[in-house]
Design a protein around this nucleic acid. Structure first.
Lengths: 236, 236
DNA sequence: CGGCTACAGTCTACATTGTAGGGAACCTGC
DNA sequence: GCAGGTTCCCTACAATGTAGACTGTAGCCG
Protein backbone atom coordinates (compact mmCIF):
# COMPACT_ATOMS: atom_id res chain seq x y z
CA UNK A 1 0.00 0.00 0.00
CA UNK A 2 1.01 3.55 -0.60
CA UNK A 3 2.52 5.68 2.08
CA UNK A 4 0.42 8.64 3.21
CA UNK A 5 2.31 10.88 0.82
CA UNK A 6 2.81 8.79 -2.23
CA UNK A 7 5.57 10.48 -4.19
CA UNK A 8 4.02 9.35 -7.43
CA UNK A 9 0.74 11.10 -6.79
CA UNK A 10 2.57 14.36 -6.39
CA UNK A 11 2.94 15.37 -9.97
CA UNK A 12 6.47 15.99 -11.17
CA UNK A 13 7.81 15.06 -7.79
CA UNK A 14 10.36 12.72 -9.22
CA UNK A 15 13.47 14.07 -7.71
CA UNK A 16 16.15 13.93 -10.27
CA UNK A 17 19.70 14.76 -9.51
CA UNK A 18 20.30 18.45 -9.00
CA UNK A 19 22.86 20.41 -10.94
CA UNK A 20 23.99 23.97 -11.13
CA UNK A 21 22.02 24.43 -14.32
CA UNK A 22 18.83 23.12 -12.81
CA UNK A 23 19.19 25.22 -9.72
CA UNK A 24 19.85 28.40 -11.66
CA UNK A 25 17.09 27.74 -14.12
CA UNK A 26 14.70 27.25 -11.24
CA UNK A 27 15.89 30.43 -9.66
CA UNK A 28 15.39 32.41 -12.84
CA UNK A 29 11.96 30.94 -13.25
CA UNK A 30 11.01 31.92 -9.75
CA UNK A 31 12.29 35.45 -10.18
CA UNK A 32 10.52 35.84 -13.48
CA UNK A 33 7.19 34.70 -12.21
CA UNK A 34 7.15 35.98 -8.67
CA UNK A 35 9.78 38.64 -8.34
CA UNK A 36 13.12 38.95 -6.68
CA UNK A 37 11.85 38.73 -3.15
CA UNK A 38 10.34 35.34 -3.80
CA UNK A 39 13.79 33.95 -4.42
CA UNK A 40 14.59 32.58 -0.99
CA UNK A 41 16.47 29.40 -0.34
CA UNK A 42 13.48 27.75 1.23
CA UNK A 43 11.18 28.78 -1.53
CA UNK A 44 13.50 27.62 -4.26
CA UNK A 45 14.00 24.35 -2.46
CA UNK A 46 10.28 23.85 -2.36
CA UNK A 47 10.06 24.69 -6.05
CA UNK A 48 12.70 22.14 -7.03
CA UNK A 49 11.41 20.02 -4.29
CA UNK A 50 14.57 19.43 -2.46
CA UNK A 51 15.93 20.51 0.85
CA UNK A 52 16.88 24.18 0.92
CA UNK A 53 20.28 23.21 2.16
CA UNK A 54 20.98 21.16 -0.93
CA UNK A 55 21.20 24.35 -2.88
CA UNK A 56 24.35 25.34 -1.11
CA UNK A 57 26.07 22.54 -2.92
CA UNK A 58 25.61 24.50 -6.18
CA UNK A 59 25.64 28.09 -5.06
CA UNK A 60 27.90 29.20 -2.31
CA UNK A 61 25.58 31.97 -1.25
CA UNK A 62 22.36 33.59 -1.94
CA UNK A 63 24.45 36.30 -3.54
CA UNK A 64 26.10 33.72 -5.76
CA UNK A 65 22.67 32.56 -6.76
CA UNK A 66 21.80 36.07 -7.81
CA UNK A 67 25.00 36.35 -9.79
CA UNK A 68 24.20 33.08 -11.44
CA UNK A 69 20.81 34.34 -12.48
CA UNK A 70 22.34 37.49 -13.98
CA UNK A 71 24.78 35.41 -15.87
CA UNK A 72 22.07 33.15 -17.16
CA UNK A 73 20.16 36.07 -18.52
CA UNK A 74 23.20 37.65 -20.09
CA UNK A 75 23.91 34.41 -21.86
CA UNK A 76 20.69 34.83 -23.74
CA UNK A 77 22.30 37.75 -25.52
CA UNK A 78 24.01 36.87 -28.73
CA UNK A 79 26.79 39.01 -30.12
CA UNK A 80 28.68 38.57 -33.35
CA UNK A 81 31.93 40.31 -32.57
CA UNK A 82 33.19 40.20 -36.13
CA UNK A 83 30.31 41.68 -38.02
CA UNK A 84 31.88 44.25 -40.34
CA UNK A 85 28.86 46.52 -40.05
CA UNK A 86 29.42 47.62 -36.48
CA UNK A 87 26.62 50.12 -36.42
CA UNK A 88 24.02 47.63 -37.51
CA UNK A 89 25.39 45.17 -35.00
CA UNK A 90 25.21 47.65 -32.16
CA UNK A 91 21.66 48.48 -33.15
CA UNK A 92 20.68 44.84 -33.12
CA UNK A 93 22.33 44.16 -29.79
CA UNK A 94 20.57 47.13 -28.29
CA UNK A 95 17.20 45.91 -29.41
CA UNK A 96 17.96 42.39 -28.28
CA UNK A 97 19.00 43.57 -24.87
CA UNK A 98 15.87 45.64 -24.63
CA UNK A 99 13.73 42.63 -25.41
CA UNK A 100 15.70 40.61 -22.93
CA UNK A 101 14.92 43.16 -20.27
CA UNK A 102 11.25 43.12 -21.13
CA UNK A 103 11.26 39.35 -20.95
CA UNK A 104 12.91 39.37 -17.54
CA UNK A 105 11.92 42.67 -15.96
CA UNK A 106 12.44 41.35 -12.46
CA UNK A 107 16.02 40.51 -13.20
CA UNK A 108 16.92 43.98 -14.41
CA UNK A 109 17.60 45.34 -10.94
CA UNK A 110 20.11 42.55 -10.58
CA UNK A 111 21.79 43.27 -13.87
CA UNK A 112 22.09 46.86 -12.92
CA UNK A 113 23.04 46.76 -9.28
CA UNK A 114 25.08 43.62 -8.75
CA UNK A 115 28.04 45.01 -10.66
CA UNK A 116 28.01 47.99 -8.35
CA UNK A 117 29.02 45.80 -5.47
CA UNK A 118 31.42 43.60 -7.39
CA UNK A 119 34.65 44.91 -8.83
CA UNK A 120 34.98 44.45 -12.53
CA UNK A 121 37.43 41.61 -12.44
CA UNK A 122 35.48 39.52 -9.99
CA UNK A 123 32.20 39.45 -11.85
CA UNK A 124 30.79 36.30 -13.32
CA UNK A 125 32.47 35.79 -16.67
CA UNK A 126 29.20 35.64 -18.52
CA UNK A 127 28.59 39.20 -17.41
CA UNK A 128 31.84 40.42 -18.88
CA UNK A 129 31.61 38.64 -22.18
CA UNK A 130 29.39 41.24 -23.85
CA UNK A 131 31.90 43.89 -22.90
CA UNK A 132 34.78 41.97 -24.39
CA UNK A 133 32.89 41.15 -27.55
CA UNK A 134 31.72 44.67 -28.16
CA UNK A 135 35.26 45.88 -27.71
CA UNK A 136 36.29 43.39 -30.34
CA UNK A 137 33.59 44.60 -32.64
CA UNK A 138 34.70 48.19 -32.30
CA UNK A 139 38.37 47.51 -32.68
CA UNK A 140 37.68 45.48 -35.79
CA UNK A 141 35.72 48.42 -37.05
CA UNK A 142 38.77 50.59 -36.83
CA UNK A 143 38.57 52.22 -33.43
CA UNK A 144 41.67 52.55 -31.36
CA UNK A 145 41.26 50.32 -28.31
CA UNK A 146 41.05 53.30 -26.03
CA UNK A 147 38.41 54.92 -28.17
CA UNK A 148 36.59 51.65 -28.36
CA UNK A 149 36.30 51.67 -24.61
CA UNK A 150 34.89 55.16 -24.66
CA UNK A 151 32.44 54.26 -27.34
CA UNK A 152 31.43 51.21 -25.42
CA UNK A 153 30.77 53.27 -22.37
CA UNK A 154 28.68 55.81 -24.17
CA UNK A 155 26.76 53.06 -25.89
CA UNK A 156 26.16 50.82 -22.93
CA UNK A 157 25.44 53.72 -20.68
CA UNK A 158 22.80 54.96 -23.02
CA UNK A 159 21.38 51.50 -23.40
CA UNK A 160 21.13 50.82 -19.70
CA UNK A 161 19.59 54.19 -19.18
CA UNK A 162 16.99 53.55 -21.77
CA UNK A 163 16.06 50.21 -20.35
CA UNK A 164 15.69 51.63 -16.89
CA UNK A 165 13.60 54.44 -18.24
CA UNK A 166 11.33 52.17 -20.13
CA UNK A 167 10.78 49.70 -17.35
CA UNK A 168 9.99 52.51 -14.98
CA UNK A 169 7.05 53.61 -17.00
CA UNK A 170 5.13 50.42 -16.88
CA UNK A 171 1.44 50.76 -16.73
CA UNK A 172 0.07 50.06 -13.31
CA UNK A 173 -3.46 48.97 -13.85
CA UNK A 174 -4.28 48.24 -17.47
CA UNK A 175 -7.94 47.75 -16.52
CA UNK A 176 -8.28 51.39 -15.66
CA UNK A 177 -8.78 53.38 -18.81
CA UNK A 178 -8.44 56.89 -17.50
CA UNK A 179 -4.83 57.68 -18.10
CA UNK A 180 -4.17 59.82 -15.06
CA UNK A 181 -5.44 57.02 -12.92
CA UNK A 182 -3.72 54.32 -14.84
CA UNK A 183 -0.37 55.84 -14.12
CA UNK A 184 -1.26 56.91 -10.62
CA UNK A 185 -0.67 60.49 -11.64
CA UNK A 186 -3.90 61.74 -10.06
CA UNK A 187 -2.05 61.79 -6.79
CA UNK A 188 0.30 64.51 -7.93
CA UNK A 189 -0.65 68.05 -6.89
CA UNK A 190 -1.72 69.73 -10.10
CA UNK A 191 -0.05 72.95 -9.11
CA UNK A 192 3.42 71.52 -8.75
CA UNK A 193 3.36 69.07 -11.60
CA UNK A 194 1.52 70.66 -14.49
CA UNK A 195 3.84 69.43 -17.21
CA UNK A 196 3.94 65.90 -16.01
CA UNK A 197 0.19 65.63 -15.66
CA UNK A 198 -0.36 67.18 -19.04
CA UNK A 199 1.84 64.57 -20.60
CA UNK A 200 -0.16 61.68 -19.23
CA UNK A 201 -1.52 60.54 -22.58
CA UNK A 202 1.93 60.64 -24.12
CA UNK A 203 3.36 58.74 -21.20
CA UNK A 204 0.72 56.11 -21.61
CA UNK A 205 1.68 55.02 -25.07
CA UNK A 206 5.38 54.71 -24.84
CA UNK A 207 6.90 53.11 -27.86
CA UNK A 208 10.11 51.87 -26.35
CA UNK A 209 11.54 50.38 -29.50
CA UNK A 210 11.09 53.56 -31.48
CA UNK A 211 12.50 55.68 -28.73
CA UNK A 212 15.50 53.46 -28.37
CA UNK A 213 16.10 53.52 -32.09
CA UNK A 214 15.86 57.26 -32.23
CA UNK A 215 18.39 57.63 -29.47
CA UNK A 216 20.65 55.13 -31.15
CA UNK A 217 20.58 57.12 -34.32
CA UNK A 218 21.73 60.23 -32.55
CA UNK A 219 24.37 58.35 -30.67
CA UNK A 220 25.76 56.26 -33.48
CA UNK A 221 25.83 59.29 -35.68
CA UNK A 222 27.94 61.16 -33.19
CA UNK A 223 30.15 58.15 -32.62
CA UNK A 224 30.77 57.61 -36.29
CA UNK A 225 31.84 61.17 -36.81
CA UNK A 226 34.30 60.68 -33.99
CA UNK A 227 35.63 57.68 -35.89
CA UNK A 228 36.06 59.27 -39.32
CA UNK A 229 37.60 62.44 -38.02
CA UNK A 230 39.58 60.59 -35.42
CA UNK A 231 42.96 61.86 -34.43
CA UNK A 232 45.42 60.46 -36.95
CA UNK A 233 47.20 57.74 -35.08
CA UNK A 234 50.95 57.46 -35.42
CA UNK A 235 50.93 53.92 -36.73
CA UNK A 236 48.30 54.51 -39.33
CA UNK B 1 25.72 56.83 42.79
CA UNK B 2 25.46 56.49 39.08
CA UNK B 3 23.64 53.64 37.52
CA UNK B 4 25.86 51.10 35.80
CA UNK B 5 25.23 52.75 32.45
CA UNK B 6 25.12 56.41 33.19
CA UNK B 7 23.51 57.99 30.14
CA UNK B 8 25.61 61.11 30.57
CA UNK B 9 28.86 59.24 30.29
CA UNK B 10 27.78 57.89 26.94
CA UNK B 11 28.80 60.73 24.71
CA UNK B 12 26.06 62.30 22.66
CA UNK B 13 23.50 60.12 24.31
CA UNK B 14 21.17 62.98 24.91
CA UNK B 15 18.06 61.72 23.30
CA UNK B 16 16.35 64.56 21.61
CA UNK B 17 12.93 64.25 20.12
CA UNK B 18 12.85 62.28 16.94
CA UNK B 19 11.47 63.65 13.71
CA UNK B 20 11.16 62.45 10.17
CA UNK B 21 14.12 64.61 9.19
CA UNK B 22 16.33 63.21 11.90
CA UNK B 23 15.40 59.66 11.11
CA UNK B 24 15.99 60.06 7.41
CA UNK B 25 19.23 61.92 7.92
CA UNK B 26 20.41 59.15 10.20
CA UNK B 27 19.41 56.58 7.66
CA UNK B 28 21.28 58.36 4.90
CA UNK B 29 24.30 58.67 7.09
CA UNK B 30 24.25 55.00 7.87
CA UNK B 31 23.90 54.04 4.25
CA UNK B 32 26.69 56.38 3.22
CA UNK B 33 29.14 55.10 5.75
CA UNK B 34 28.29 51.43 5.95
CA UNK B 35 26.26 50.50 2.93
CA UNK B 36 22.70 49.60 2.22
CA UNK B 37 22.69 46.36 4.14
CA UNK B 38 23.63 48.13 7.32
CA UNK B 39 20.37 50.02 7.23
CA UNK B 40 18.26 47.82 9.45
CA UNK B 41 15.69 49.09 11.85
CA UNK B 42 17.64 47.88 14.84
CA UNK B 43 20.87 49.32 13.64
CA UNK B 44 19.35 52.69 12.87
CA UNK B 45 17.67 52.70 16.24
CA UNK B 46 21.00 52.07 17.89
CA UNK B 47 22.54 54.85 15.84
CA UNK B 48 19.91 57.39 16.84
CA UNK B 49 19.84 55.74 20.14
CA UNK B 50 16.20 55.02 20.36
CA UNK B 51 14.10 51.95 20.21
CA UNK B 52 13.90 50.43 16.76
CA UNK B 53 10.15 50.48 17.01
CA UNK B 54 10.06 54.22 17.40
CA UNK B 55 11.11 54.55 13.82
CA UNK B 56 7.84 53.21 12.60
CA UNK B 57 6.27 56.42 13.77
CA UNK B 58 8.16 58.26 11.04
CA UNK B 59 8.45 55.68 8.32
CA UNK B 60 5.68 53.25 7.70
CA UNK B 61 8.02 50.62 6.42
CA UNK B 62 11.54 49.80 5.77
CA UNK B 63 10.64 50.40 2.15
CA UNK B 64 9.33 53.83 3.03
CA UNK B 65 12.60 54.51 4.75
CA UNK B 66 14.43 53.65 1.59
CA UNK B 67 12.17 55.91 -0.42
CA UNK B 68 12.81 58.66 2.05
CA UNK B 69 16.53 58.29 1.64
CA UNK B 70 16.21 58.49 -2.13
CA UNK B 71 14.13 61.59 -1.81
CA UNK B 72 16.61 63.16 0.53
CA UNK B 73 19.42 62.64 -1.91
CA UNK B 74 17.40 63.91 -4.83
CA UNK B 75 16.67 67.05 -2.92
CA UNK B 76 20.34 67.85 -2.93
CA UNK B 77 20.00 68.41 -6.65
CA UNK B 78 19.27 71.97 -7.62
CA UNK B 79 17.56 72.78 -10.88
CA UNK B 80 16.75 76.19 -12.28
CA UNK B 81 13.85 75.40 -14.54
CA UNK B 82 13.79 78.80 -16.19
CA UNK B 83 17.34 79.18 -17.28
CA UNK B 84 17.18 80.38 -20.88
CA UNK B 85 20.33 78.49 -21.78
CA UNK B 86 18.89 75.04 -21.59
CA UNK B 87 21.95 73.29 -22.87
CA UNK B 88 24.23 74.79 -20.27
CA UNK B 89 21.66 73.98 -17.63
CA UNK B 90 21.41 70.36 -18.68
CA UNK B 91 25.17 70.13 -18.65
CA UNK B 92 25.35 71.54 -15.17
CA UNK B 93 22.61 69.28 -13.85
CA UNK B 94 24.35 66.27 -15.30
CA UNK B 95 27.59 67.11 -13.57
CA UNK B 96 25.81 67.86 -10.34
CA UNK B 97 24.00 64.58 -10.42
CA UNK B 98 27.23 62.81 -11.14
CA UNK B 99 28.86 64.38 -8.12
CA UNK B 100 25.83 63.53 -6.06
CA UNK B 101 26.22 59.91 -7.06
CA UNK B 102 29.89 59.94 -6.17
CA UNK B 103 29.08 61.45 -2.82
CA UNK B 104 26.46 58.80 -2.10
CA UNK B 105 27.52 55.77 -4.06
CA UNK B 106 25.65 53.41 -1.79
CA UNK B 107 22.40 55.17 -2.48
CA UNK B 108 22.65 54.84 -6.22
CA UNK B 109 21.17 51.35 -6.32
CA UNK B 110 18.19 52.80 -4.54
CA UNK B 111 17.82 55.68 -6.93
CA UNK B 112 17.97 53.30 -9.80
CA UNK B 113 15.90 50.37 -8.67
CA UNK B 114 13.23 51.71 -6.36
CA UNK B 115 11.39 53.36 -9.25
CA UNK B 116 11.26 50.01 -10.99
CA UNK B 117 8.96 48.70 -8.32
CA UNK B 118 6.92 51.84 -7.87
CA UNK B 119 4.63 53.18 -10.56
CA UNK B 120 5.43 56.66 -11.67
CA UNK B 121 2.57 58.38 -9.94
CA UNK B 122 3.19 56.79 -6.59
CA UNK B 123 6.78 57.77 -6.15
CA UNK B 124 7.95 60.18 -3.53
CA UNK B 125 7.35 63.65 -4.86
CA UNK B 126 10.95 64.66 -4.41
CA UNK B 127 11.86 62.00 -6.89
CA UNK B 128 9.57 63.40 -9.54
CA UNK B 129 10.47 67.02 -9.15
CA UNK B 130 13.59 66.85 -11.32
CA UNK B 131 11.49 65.34 -14.07
CA UNK B 132 8.92 68.09 -13.86
CA UNK B 133 11.51 70.81 -13.73
CA UNK B 134 13.49 69.56 -16.66
CA UNK B 135 10.32 69.32 -18.66
CA UNK B 136 9.71 72.96 -17.79
CA UNK B 137 13.19 73.87 -18.85
CA UNK B 138 12.78 72.21 -22.19
CA UNK B 139 9.36 73.57 -22.92
CA UNK B 140 10.57 77.04 -22.09
CA UNK B 141 13.41 76.44 -24.49
CA UNK B 142 10.96 75.89 -27.29
CA UNK B 143 10.37 72.16 -27.37
CA UNK B 144 6.90 70.85 -27.88
CA UNK B 145 5.86 69.10 -24.65
CA UNK B 146 5.90 65.75 -26.35
CA UNK B 147 9.36 66.34 -27.72
CA UNK B 148 10.46 67.61 -24.35
CA UNK B 149 9.53 64.26 -22.88
CA UNK B 150 11.54 62.45 -25.49
CA UNK B 151 14.49 64.69 -24.93
CA UNK B 152 14.20 64.18 -21.22
CA UNK B 153 14.23 60.45 -21.69
CA UNK B 154 17.27 60.47 -23.89
CA UNK B 155 19.04 62.82 -21.52
CA UNK B 156 18.21 61.11 -18.29
CA UNK B 157 18.71 57.71 -19.75
CA UNK B 158 22.18 58.62 -20.85
CA UNK B 159 22.91 60.24 -17.52
CA UNK B 160 21.81 57.26 -15.46
CA UNK B 161 23.73 55.00 -17.72
CA UNK B 162 26.87 57.01 -17.30
CA UNK B 163 26.59 57.06 -13.56
CA UNK B 164 26.11 53.33 -13.39
CA UNK B 165 29.05 52.83 -15.68
CA UNK B 166 31.30 55.04 -13.68
CA UNK B 167 30.41 53.59 -10.32
CA UNK B 168 30.96 50.11 -11.63
CA UNK B 169 34.55 50.77 -12.37
CA UNK B 170 35.64 51.69 -8.93
CA UNK B 171 39.09 50.67 -7.98
CA UNK B 172 39.13 47.73 -5.64
CA UNK B 173 42.34 48.03 -3.78
CA UNK B 174 44.15 51.33 -4.23
CA UNK B 175 47.12 49.99 -2.29
CA UNK B 176 47.91 47.56 -5.03
CA UNK B 177 49.78 49.32 -7.80
CA UNK B 178 49.77 46.67 -10.45
CA UNK B 179 46.76 47.56 -12.53
CA UNK B 180 45.61 44.11 -13.44
CA UNK B 181 45.55 43.21 -9.82
CA UNK B 182 43.98 46.43 -8.73
CA UNK B 183 40.98 45.81 -10.89
CA UNK B 184 40.90 42.11 -10.19
CA UNK B 185 41.42 41.50 -13.89
CA UNK B 186 44.14 38.94 -13.34
CA UNK B 187 41.42 36.42 -12.74
CA UNK B 188 40.15 36.66 -16.31
CA UNK B 189 41.40 33.97 -18.69
CA UNK B 190 43.76 35.82 -21.01
CA UNK B 191 42.55 33.85 -23.98
CA UNK B 192 38.92 34.87 -23.69
CA UNK B 193 39.40 38.45 -22.62
CA UNK B 194 42.36 39.89 -24.48
CA UNK B 195 40.85 43.29 -25.16
CA UNK B 196 39.62 43.83 -21.68
CA UNK B 197 42.93 42.91 -20.13
CA UNK B 198 44.86 45.03 -22.55
CA UNK B 199 42.76 48.00 -21.57
CA UNK B 200 43.59 47.70 -17.90
CA UNK B 201 45.69 50.87 -17.73
CA UNK B 202 42.99 52.86 -19.46
CA UNK B 203 40.35 51.43 -17.19
CA UNK B 204 42.39 52.42 -14.22
CA UNK B 205 42.42 56.11 -14.88
CA UNK B 206 38.86 56.79 -15.72
CA UNK B 207 38.07 60.46 -15.96
CA UNK B 208 34.37 60.32 -15.36
CA UNK B 209 33.74 64.03 -15.68
CA UNK B 210 35.43 64.25 -19.04
CA UNK B 211 33.70 61.19 -20.31
CA UNK B 212 30.36 62.49 -19.21
CA UNK B 213 30.98 65.80 -20.84
CA UNK B 214 32.00 64.20 -24.07
CA UNK B 215 28.84 62.14 -24.17
CA UNK B 216 26.78 65.19 -23.34
CA UNK B 217 28.27 67.05 -26.25
CA UNK B 218 27.27 64.36 -28.65
CA UNK B 219 23.84 64.09 -27.15
CA UNK B 220 23.05 67.77 -26.83
CA UNK B 221 24.29 68.32 -30.31
CA UNK B 222 21.92 65.74 -31.66
CA UNK B 223 19.08 67.06 -29.55
CA UNK B 224 19.58 70.60 -30.64
CA UNK B 225 19.49 69.69 -34.26
CA UNK B 226 16.21 67.96 -33.58
CA UNK B 227 14.99 71.23 -32.11
CA UNK B 228 15.99 73.58 -34.89
CA UNK B 229 14.85 71.30 -37.66
CA UNK B 230 11.86 70.18 -35.71
CA UNK B 231 8.73 69.25 -37.57
CA UNK B 232 6.89 72.50 -38.18
CA UNK B 233 4.11 72.43 -35.67
CA UNK B 234 0.69 73.59 -36.76
CA UNK B 235 0.43 76.31 -34.16
CA UNK B 236 3.78 77.80 -34.86
C1' DC C 1 32.47 -10.05 -0.26
C1' DG C 2 33.63 -6.32 3.40
C1' DG C 3 34.97 -2.12 4.47
C1' DC C 4 36.68 2.49 3.14
C1' DT C 5 36.14 6.96 1.06
C1' DA C 6 33.71 10.70 -1.18
C1' DC C 7 30.04 13.04 -2.15
C1' DA C 8 24.76 14.36 -2.42
C1' DG C 9 21.22 15.41 0.24
C1' DT C 10 18.91 16.18 4.88
C1' DC C 11 17.94 17.63 9.58
C1' DT C 12 18.42 20.60 13.38
C1' DA C 13 19.68 24.81 15.35
C1' DC C 14 20.77 29.73 15.71
C1' DA C 15 21.35 34.55 14.96
C1' DT C 16 19.25 38.29 12.53
C1' DT C 17 15.68 40.50 10.18
C1' DG C 18 10.90 43.20 9.76
C1' DT C 19 7.04 44.19 12.27
C1' DA C 20 2.37 43.45 15.08
C1' DG C 21 0.25 44.43 19.67
C1' DG C 22 0.06 46.32 24.02
C1' DG C 23 1.28 49.05 27.33
C1' DA C 24 4.31 53.16 29.67
C1' DA C 25 5.64 57.80 29.70
C1' DC C 26 5.06 62.31 28.36
C1' DC C 27 3.01 66.57 26.55
C1' DT C 28 -1.06 69.67 25.95
C1' DG C 29 -5.37 71.51 26.69
C1' DC C 30 -8.59 72.45 30.41
C1' DG D 1 -4.66 67.85 38.66
C1' DC D 2 -6.56 65.38 34.91
C1' DA D 3 -8.34 63.53 30.20
C1' DG D 4 -6.74 62.55 25.79
C1' DG D 5 -3.63 62.15 22.40
C1' DT D 6 1.12 61.50 20.93
C1' DT D 7 5.53 59.38 21.35
C1' DC D 8 8.19 55.81 22.77
C1' DC D 9 9.52 51.19 24.47
C1' DC D 10 9.07 46.17 25.39
C1' DT D 11 7.89 41.71 24.17
C1' DA D 12 6.87 38.35 20.87
C1' DC D 13 6.64 36.01 16.38
C1' DA D 14 7.38 34.47 11.81
C1' DA D 15 10.67 34.42 8.14
C1' DT D 16 15.28 34.53 6.45
C1' DG D 17 20.36 32.94 5.53
C1' DT D 18 23.39 29.67 6.85
C1' DA D 19 26.67 26.69 10.00
C1' DG D 20 27.43 21.92 11.45
C1' DA D 21 26.49 17.36 12.15
C1' DC D 22 24.19 13.44 10.23
C1' DT D 23 22.38 9.89 6.73
C1' DG D 24 22.39 7.43 2.70
C1' DT D 25 24.41 5.80 -1.47
C1' DA D 26 27.74 4.82 -5.07
C1' DG D 27 32.16 3.43 -6.29
C1' DC D 28 36.54 1.53 -5.47
C1' DC D 29 40.31 -1.42 -3.51
C1' DG D 30 41.80 -5.27 -1.03
Amino acid sequence: MASPKDPVTEASAQKLRLSKEIVLAGALDLVDTEGLDALTMRRLGQELNCDPMSLYRYAENRAALLDGVSELVFNELEIFPHDPDWKAQLRRIAHDLRLLALRHPNVVPLLVTRPLSTPLGLRPLGTLRPLEQILSLLVDAGFEPTDALHVYRAYYGFLYGHILNELQEFIVDPEENEVLLRLGLHRLPAKDFPRLRALAPVLADYDGAAELDQGLTILLCGLESSLTQSVPSATD
